[in-house]
Design a binder for these strands. Structure first.
Lengths: 220, 220
DNA sequence: AATATATAAAGATATTTTTCTTTATTCTCA
DNA sequence: TGAGAATAAAGAAAAATATCTTTATATATT
């Protein structure tokens, strides 16, 4: 096997967000292809499999730093490594999760975050009955413990899966204790300092899109 | 209390998707304001609370059909009703969920879908041990039962929370039995006929954005 | 009653993202 | 060896979206 030098993208900056969002899809596909034994894959083929525009795939690939061979396509091995690098599957980010309800538990259980560059190391809740228990090996603590743990460990990501009412105060806590990015599942617009990264995953937004499209369809 | 006539939007079509995605946020906020007793709210105020551009809020509001009063703003009551109407909280959509794992259970448990216009009426799985059990009152059946139930009841939405490997075959099944929209949580690009609505909620995409931004921040 | 002000609404501009075009490369097949 | 075909890559155009600007209106204040 020849050595592979992954040229890092020219600039670490300014990758369009839609592109970033497509990257995990590419990785998933490329992994499947490699398992099948494919050595190469072309952008048009990827496009067809994922239902995307071929040139868009080419452009996205350019951000990974791999360059394809004309008439052959991209090396699947090279692509996989480059995508994993791009998505940060090497550097490990550790996360705290607050709100160990059903959604929180689901996220903890969700296999794959670990290999996706993030590890949930602890969960927090206000329900006394949950203190001291474990979810898939992840311990559940009282919110009081948050302070000590967060400052001792170097936690970069905070996940909020609490009810809407509690989300802002949890976010405030996370900011105080040095969290750099907040992944918010509560249907609330969080107010945090500018340098804090906030990523909202509003389940209802997706439902709204579905129901809106269903309504549209009926009218035509 | 005076009677309220909600003028339906001029055209039921072509509401920009980003607008649709913001609608649940508006509704959530307006409900909170009404509970607080506020009779009116202006677009700039909404914008400040949700961290949006004021004119964007005005434009979004226009799609609900309500018109505000200069210097006063929008009637919260009128807005709430219009938003609920827009989001289809009146017409009930019933849904089947396939994949009663942790994520699937979380969605079923998630309070609020019911009042958000969707009701999950049954769940399906391939794990025999789950057959006959209930999650929050929602029965879990074998996938074999899917056929009969789907044709008997009028189910418009199918939710896929299976592992990636099973997603496509589940989608095929859903198409056969007349599902109109699929809400897909598996990290797979589903192939379905054109008239079927597919809404992907790829958890990993959000994680990718977070980690990408974290990486960017470190480099500056 | 008149003026100043906050606001909705409509229009215009700018930005972002996607799609389309073109060019050049290189592999395959005759 | 040479022609044809599939592809990556770069550039241009188009579409969608967000932001900015202007105008008109209605309300509260003086």
């Amino acid at each position: 096997m020849e050595s592979l030098t992954i040229t890092t993208p020219k600039k670490q900056q300014a990758v369009p967000e839609p592109t970033v969002r497509r990257m995990p899809q590419y990785l998933h596909l490329v992994r499947a292809l490699r398992e099948k034994g494919d050595m190469y894959v072309s952008a048009p083929v990827i496009a067809r499999m994922l239902g995307l525009d071929p040139t868009q795939v080419v452009k996205d690939m350019a951000y990974t730093g791999v360059s394809g061979k004309t008439r052959i396509g991209f090396s699947t091995e090279e692509l996989q490594l480059a995508l994993e690098d791009f998505l940060g599957y090497n550097r490990k980010h550790e996360a705290f999760l607050v709100g160990a309800g059903y959604l929180g538990s689901a996220l903890i259980q969700y296999q794959g975050f670990r290999e996706a560059g993030m590890k949930i190391v602890a969960a927090f809740d206000t329900d006394k009955r949950k203190f001291g228990t474990e979810i898939q090996g992840v311990p559940v603590f009282s919110l009081e413990k948050f302070r000590d743990l967060a400052s001792r460990l170097h936690i970069s990501i905070g996940i909020i899966t609490t009810p809407a009412g509690a989300a802002q105060s949890v976010a405030d806590l996370m900011v105080v204790w040095g969290i750099k990015a907040i992944w918010n599942f509560a249907p609330v617009a969080l107010k945090v300092p500018d340098q804090i990264i906030v990523q909202d995953t509003h389940i209802y937004a997706n439902l709204a899109v579905i129901i809106n499209k269903l309504g549209q369809q009926k009218n035509s």
